[in-house]
Design a protein around this nucleic acid. Structure first.
Lengths: 202, 202
DNA sequence: ATAAATTGATTGAACGTTCAATCAATTTAT
DNA sequence: ATAAATTGATTGAACGTTCAATCAATTTAT
């Protein structure tokens, strides 16, 4: 117990080195030799911890997904109402987009590969679905029961908000996204409140 | 006059082959040999038409940018009012996203490289700025003169709409974007009208 | 009108480089 | 003494680039 195994530690070292390399030098430049060097190791050892390069890349994407999920769980713990929960979800997603340039640009690199690597597509689908169902669960309580097509409206708003989050995430990932950090959160929150108000006051 | 030169024709052949290769096999698999084979040529000839691979890739991105712009100009010619113009802009952007899977996935691949290739960043910035200023110009006429902070509001709506468009474009690019073609356009149009209504009826 | 010269397009082979993967040898920890 | 971790050398394939050679089409000179 206690200290985590060297094996687990090295895997994380390599995953983090992989992220840093992709972020700073681009996906094309992220060879095993370069990644290993960043972790203070040599290329040969990588195969001791990962079957092949594809597995390292997959583990890296999974690592980001888990990190995001952990932040999400932690943030939701303090939320008291459905609205607070949705706002926390927005903050977590856009917060990591803004404060962790590394996570964001690695994610962007992976987006470009999702269509060609089924393993990555699976991970992406899990994250996307999780966001959608989280948003739906909370927004359901924010839309008046009297609202016609209640469930449809809920899903429409959740989908719109997650599309908006993706768009903002993309802007954050592009060095020249042309958007300020404060604006980012405001756009998402504004969209949410506008939709909620509209459907409730009809 | 008349027939375009062989040189221009071959360049387009190679650009199109480049797009098809990236779309179908992924950016990583798009080697010069593979691209040339798709155009019915061999790898060697590429350097006869492009300085190097980077120039071919840049020309490909530029090609897409121009195509998008041409469609935009054509669509705007039939628009009669500011609202029609904005709707046409939405249609052009999301239309090509939906009906041309190739364009979309190539664009997605480039997004992942923009931060590491200044030449691509420039092209991306041009497109992004052009969309923003087009939207602003039309939305300016849709927001009431009485509205306080008129120009600020205009830019807020234009930014929100272009973020939404980016998000929708991304969904269209991902094979598993979880969004239907009809929904795509509806989300953008809905967002626009909702914002306009709100600021005008205050 | 004919022949010679020139151009442009294309191929296929060769080059040096980089890469992922493999593995025997060595070092380190237990 | 044993097992695990790590290195460093090696391999074979793939890559982008370069270039000599070929050849059809075009231009120029006679």
């Amino acid at each position: 117990m206690g200290r985590i195994s060297l094996k687990a530690q090295r895997r994380v070292d390599l995953i983090r080195a992989c992220m840093r390399t992709i972020h700073e030098e681009g996906f094309e430049a992220a060879s095993l030799a370069r990644i290993a060097r960043r972790a203070g190791l040599t290329a040969g050892i990588v195969s001791h911890y990962f079957r092949d390069k594809a597995e390292l890349l997959e583990a890296t994407m999974r690592f980001i997904a888990r990190e995001l999920y952990d932040h999400q769980l932690k943030a939701l713990r303090h939320a008291q109402s459905p609205m607070e929960r949705v706002l926390a979800t927005i903050d977590v997603n856009l917060g990591s987009a803004q404060f962790n340039a590394e996570t964001t640009s690695v994610w962007l690199a992976f987006w470009g590969r999702v269509n060609h690597v089924p393993q990555l597509a699976r991970i992406q689908r899990v994250i996307s679905r999780r966001l959608m169902s989280n948003l739906c669960a909370d927004i359901r309580h924010l839309v008046s029961d009297q609202c016609p097509d209640h469930e449809k409206v809920v899903q429409h708003i959740a989908l719109g908000l997650s599309v908006m989050i993706d768009g903002l995430w993309l802007r954050a990932a592009l060095t020249n996204g042309g958007i300020e950090p404060e604006e980012t959160r405001a756009l998402a929150v504004n969209y949410l409140k506008m939709e909620i108000e509209r459907v409730n006051q009809q």
